[in-house]
Write a protein that binds this DNA or RNA. Structure first.
Lengths: 301, 301
DNA sequence: CTGAAAGCGCTTACAG
DNA sequence: CTGAAAGCGCTTACAG
């Protein structure tokens, strides 16, 4: 094209506010530059970080990210949220914590759509997967506490998938089993701060408790508060550790011993899996920094 | 249609996995059931909550939400993120904290697209707006501290828009001015925990500091840690308050005095503004609970 | 009420 | 290299 003509066209584009119609382009090309994300939550730490990683990587690849939030325990929530999203010819969907969902309902919706997931080790679903090694995190944290001399370690659990235990619970149990330690009953929480406090109160009443692995850092924070209210000191009377390495963990008093998992990396990697040649798709494991030693874990008195 | 025929069609739909092509529908209808969200951040507390409100309301209305993250200080980040999103004939865009951005670049991109914003009071941009009253929150918090008997109140500020101060800083200043109190220099942070710690260290060195309003709860937490490390007790030596009422604020020891702003409501309301008759569009203010009194504010010694 | 046609705004293959 | 045609999969108005 002659430069002069090009100029004229550009001027007209500007003047008229012309913007190519993405729907028309999508129609003819058969795909929209949209990466779908399906999640049970978008506000908890791990999820916000995965979303961040997904968004960054998707943008680099020229895609926009769309979000559908669904309640894993309410199959009826799947259709309204996911249906609209899949109505678009999106390039694919990333399911955060696929193992959480009822297989049938979600898989049915997703039929024919490229999918990747970020999740723990559960292999029940045959989908390209970025593994965030919850199991290993909990195992190493439990080993750390056992290594400090604790007879056993309690666990405030975060919910698992349909009937199956969370990977964090599995790892904690493995470490205890391997050490031949007594496996106490799991104290369940539902991710909420309130449930963390309740769990803490329960643990505070039991004088045999000397060490606790919490399902995540926020729960650990709530547990510590209840322990404090009951007059039990951390780490002198009981050691408490979290998982995730929440940005605030280093700032609490004392700083929380925890385990860093790279959720941002995991999110980015999931986009790569989705956009890559699907046949190459396999599994990758997100990096982790191992136990982050701070002030809430100590030997028993 | 005869029931029998309907059955047959439904069966065929199921068998073939037929799914209506949203792009084709969008092409003929001229709009996609997509609500775009433009934000500088998706991981900080207020943003996650607004996103939650947006997502819920959008889903109820049968829309899906798409996200574009842009850096307010890098106009070059606008095009890649927003351009792809606006390439779709979306129903409209919600700009979180519109006042943050360089007017020109973003407004130009947004030309012709219905827009709503969730933001403070700045009126420079003429767009339907859900007001989250940062100014009032900081003002009332400062008044609370002044009412306790503090001579003046320091402020750890969170960044503002292009050159303009954040609404929280404005409110803090208003309260001091109204009370005839000395207005100390603002200690700036950049939202990060590290910058909150640095601000806390600075404040700890100044023996005249007896009360601090922090730009948000996380910053307050970091400031308290630095104060603690410097041997200054909260609230005995210095009172510290935050803004937002982060879920963890009640669980810290002592519980953080703060101010609750309803970000989830604000997000939902923004979707309503966008989907409503645009001529009716005006401004609404998100509810707030006022000062949430907890353990970090007390009279000076 | 049913069925066929036109058209949404692009891209792609093909003729000139 | 340029220009006109066909076609993506729907919806909508219209004829039968």
């Amino acid at each position: 094209v002659r430069p002069a003509t090009r100029e004229k066209v550009q001027a007209a584009i500007k003047k008229l506010g012309y913007r190519p119609n993405g729907a028309a382009r999508a129609l003819v090309q058969g795909r929209q530059p949209i990466v779908g994300v399906i999640a049970r939550n978008t506000t908890e730490f791990g999820y916000t970080q995965m979303l961040l990683g997904i968004e960054q990587r998707a943008r680099e690849a020229g895609h926009v990210v769309a979000i559908a939030v669904i309640d894993p325990h309410d199959p009826g929530s799947i259709e309204p949220a996911v249906g609209v999203m899949l109505g678009q010819p999106i390039v694919g969907a990333i399911v955060l914590d696929y193992d959480f969902y009822d297989r049938g309902a979600l898989s049915e919706q997703l039929a024919g759509v490229p999918v990747a997931t970020v999740a723990g080790l559960d292999d029940a679903i045959d989908v390209p997967r970025v593994v965030v090694d919850d199991r290993r995190a909990a195992r190493e944290l439990t080993e750390h506490l056992l290594g400090l001399g604790h007879r056993t370690v309690h666990h405030v659990g975060v919910p698992g998938a349909h009937g199956r235990p969370n990977g964090r619970e599995v790892g904690w149990r493995e470490a205890l089993d391997a050490a031949g330690a007594v496996v106490p009953e799991v104290v369940l929480s539902d991710w909420s701060i309130a449930s963390g406090r309740a769990a803490g109160s329960l643990l505070a009443q039991d004088g045999t408790v000397t060490a606790v692995v919490c399902g995540n850092d926020e729960i650990a924070c709530a547990v510590m508060r209840s322990l404090h209210d009951a007059g039990r000191r951390v780490p002198d009377d009981v050691s408490v550790v979290g998982i995730d390495d929440h940005p605030l963990a280093e700032v609490w008093v004392p700083g929380l011993t925890t385990y860093r998992l790279d959720f941002v990396w995991a999110g980015s990697a999931a986009v790569d899996l989705l956009l890559e040649d699907p046949r190459r798709a396999g599994r990758v494991t997100a990096p982790s920094s191992g136990v982050v030693l701070r002030g809430t874990s100590a030997p028993p008195r």
